[in-house]
């Protein structure tokens, strides 16, 4: 034990590293668990965002595809020249404003359409099969369906006009319901995300109570202490959220890649009809970024408020000596 310890200074000054240990320990079990929880919750939230956006997009795609068309159906009858009637119907429909074109489904195409029910190799000319004229509509300037329908059934009694209104209405309400359910689920997931982040952050902070107390007692201001913790927890939150959100986006990309590769197969086509083109639009990316920003902000803010409240409680105890402390 040296009474004049100056000899040791040279050495100690050199060995004292330039970068001081952070006041909040860089990583402990609680911090890693917090990161993991945040990653999982962010992953789920981003998946939900993506799924809701995809449903919304598919729903409006069905809706517009179907509402873009109307059909005129002409039933065959004895002594009735269906081909002439088809052409007449086509001419009447095409004459209306708001109709882009009217197309007769010819016999081979009709056979194609009926193939699943009737099989191949059937001579349709001998069967009383109804025939169709498909009318494409200018969506922005739709024609007067009633007027077309009236004109056609006046000219051709066997013809009926179907503007798919019933279908469209049903699809619209279904799409709305689906989107609404999706948004409700998203709200639940986001609520769970917020609560999990808040409670997990507070849990992770609990192990740091001693640090807060010691800092407070050696004269650190509340702002200083909160600053130390919120910086650390910002990074913990950001790391978790980026891992989770990134994972979700990666999953969507894999899905999209798989869907595009399989688009040419019948199975792929079915999937495409159901879910649209599967492309993860800009919306999903923006949604994921928002989730990440939300989580990082939330973690930071929770850390700050929890630290400030802990200090408040430490000081409260001086007003109420019966409470355990020191």
């Amino acid at each position: 034990m040296a009474d004049t310890p100056m000899q040791m200074n040279a050495e100690t000054q050199v060995t004292q590293s330039a970068k001081p240990t952070p006041i909040v320990p860089p990583s402990n079990i609680a911090g890693q668990a917090l990161s993991l929880v945040i990653a999982i919750m962010s992953f789920l939230a981003c998946l939900t965002v993506g799924a809701v956006l995809m449903i919304d997009r598919s729903a409006s795609a069905w809706q517009s595809q179907i509402s873009r068309e109307a059909t005129i159906q002409i039933r065959p009858a004895r002594d009735f020249d269906i081909e002439t009637a088809l052409m007449e119907a086509q001419a009447i429909a095409a004459g209306f404003e708001g109709v882009v074109n009217a197309r007769i489904i010819d016999l081979p195409q009709t056979a194609n359409l009926l193939e699943p029910w009737l099989g191949t190799g059937i001579d349709l000319a001998e069967l009383p099969v109804p025939r169709l004229v498909v009318i494409r509509i200018d969506e922005r300037n739709p024609p007067d369906f009633k007027a077309i329908g009236a004109a056609i059934s006046e000219a051709i009694p066997n013809a009926t006009m179907d503007d798919h209104r019933a279908w469209v209405d049903r699809l619209v309400s279904m799409a709305r319901t689906t989107t609404f359910v999706g948004v409700a689920i998203l709200a639940l997931v986001l609520t769970a995300l917020v609560l999990t982040v808040v409670f997990a952050t507070r849990g992770a902070l609990a192990s740091n109570h001693v640090i807060i107390e010691v800092l407070h007692f050696v004269g650190a201001r509340a702002n200083f202490i909160a600053g130390q913790f919120q910086r650390r927890f910002f990074w913990i939150g950001l790391r978790g959220a980026v891992i989770g959100g990134g994972g979700a986006i990666l999953l969507f990309l894999i899905f999209q890649f798989w869907a595009q590769r399989n688009l040419t197969t019948a199975q792929g086509e079915q999937v495409a009809v159901l879910f649209g083109d599967f492309s993860i639009g800009m919306g999903t990316f923006i949604g994921a970024l928002l989730v990440i920003a939300l989580v990082a902000t939330l973690t930071t803010l929770t850390a700050r408020l929890t630290v400030i409240r802990t200090i408040y409680e430490i000081d409260e105890q001086r007003a109420d000596p019966s409470r355990q402390f020191y």
């Binding site: 001081p20 006041i23 107390e213 010691v214 050696v218």
Partner: peptide
């Protein structure tokens, strides 16, 4: 009431640091 993750030096320097 020392901070276990900090060295002796840093514990003593803590009041100055804050």
């Amino acid at each position: 009431r020392l901070l276990d993750h900090m060295t002796t030096f840093e514990n003593v320097a803590l009041p100055l640091r804050v």
